[in-house]
Design a protein around this nucleic acid. Structure first.
Lengths: 237, 237
DNA sequence: CAATACGATTTCCTATAGGATTTCATATAG
DNA sequence: CTATATGAAATCCTATAGGAAATCGTATTG
């Protein structure tokens, strides 16, 4: 005689984040997806590591069905790979070749998008962008790793907001998608937060403030090229 | 487009046909994925239509588990959307806005890629490209719809092969992914196969034959712009 | 006619049992 | 000692049966 739990009151354990009082109408599969996604982004599941369904059943206190569904979705997004009769595992670390391809893609898209953003920039959007850039405080104090993790997140928000102003949602989604893969790489080889990156962001903001599309394009191109050169040594070791 | 995996040589049992006793190299979930993907691409499941798990259970003669897994993967790729306690449905038809964004994206990427392809072109690759373009025969005879369906497929192969020569796999995957969505749109409003498109392909080939990167860029840009203008009237009705 | 109540349908999720395959340790033959 | 074969454990994968929640249509009542 089994006594299944009522669905409406089941919540997945989200460490650090309190569950909302009102239950959002999200399926269990969706919550499982978020839980696994968070574990991947936090490197709690490192690249290439096995992901067994049984472990997740125990860890998340859900049956196999929503877990399989969530893993299928993660597979469709390329964050997880499946081998028949072996199981799921986190996607492998990005290769140098793929790293360079990503920066080629960014250089083809982001400078142009920055130019359009400058042409369409509003005062409200500029204020938001400045705020996002401002959060990346130069002040030390926190430990290096936590600080870089915060910088990586804020840098992503900054670039994403620019793409939002530029107005092409498809480009925005494409780069956001690639960024989720890239994020893991950045955290693995967490480079120091350089003052240069912050200077480059300010140069982009200055071009936006002047509504200078051409300067925005140049500043963005320079920023991405330098970002690439800063991270490239990670492959040399 | 699905990730490259060793492909199964076996198929799902046709209705009435018993399942083979020998073990299949590919998981059932993978075969189910292919089956649903094919139904979406062939418009057998039109955009927005409901996709119930039970129907697929009956139609494909497998249990719910692999079907849920496959639907999850399709959801991750954006070809299918899920609503809690309502179920799955095929992704809605592309909007005009999204159509224009796609062509912006293509114009930012494909001309540049065509230029690189021209610089890296080999005789073997050129022969393959010419063959792919040649399959799109100008001869009539077949009925209009089947002919356009064939053209759409071959056009996709042509562009994809160019991206392969250009050498950036990430760009190639990105555009292939977007193309699966776009393909459905093209079939819904199957425009006539114009002789123009074939002429444009030949112009691109000529630039490749001359290893002229600049001409390839121009020809590709013109081809995409004209393709956009040919399809745009579909939104006017 | 309008509003509510109720049942049927659909869908999500769970549970359990068992078959198939890989991996790894152990034993045996050369 | 090395290489191959055998067997056990772990894991994945499938099938089936059914409970809980939401939606929809219909019928009843004011």
């Amino acid at each position: 005689m089994r006594s299944p739990k009522p669905h409406a009151t089941t919540h997945l354990p989200e460490p650090g984040e309190p569950a909302p009082a009102v239950h959002r109408a999200a399926s269990l599969a969706e919550e499982v997806y978020d839980a696994i996604f968070a574990r991947l982004m936090a490197l709690k599941i490192p690249p290439g590591a096995r992901i067994t369904v049984d472990n997740l059943v125990r860890e998340l206190a859900v049956s196999q069905t929503p877990i399989r569904e969530a893993l299928g979705r993660l597979e469709g997004e390329g964050l997880v790979v499946k081998t028949h009769l072996v199981g799921y595992s986190a996607a492998p670390q990005i290769t140098r070749r793929r790293f360079e391809e990503l920066y080629e893609l960014r250089l083809l898209l982001e400078p142009e998008m920055a130019g359009r953003a400058a042409a369409r920039m509003t005062d409200a959007a500029l204020a938001e962008l400045t705020a996002a850039a401002g959060v990346m405080s130069r002040s030390g104090g926190i430990d290096e790793r936590a600080r870089y993790s915060q910088f990586a997140r804020q840098d992503a928000v900054f670039h994403d907001q620019i793409l939002g102003v530029a107005g092409n949602e498809m480009v925005r989604e494409t780069l956001a998608h690639q960024h989720t893969h890239f994020h893991i790489f950045r955290l693995m080889f967490h480079a120091r937060v350089t003052e240069e990156a912050l200077d480059e962001h300010e140069a982009i903001l200055a071009a936006f403030a002047a509504r200078d599309a051409d300067a925005a394009r140049r500043a963005m191109r320079l920023h991405i090229e330098r970002s690439r050169d800063r991270l490239l040594p990670a492959f040399e070791q």
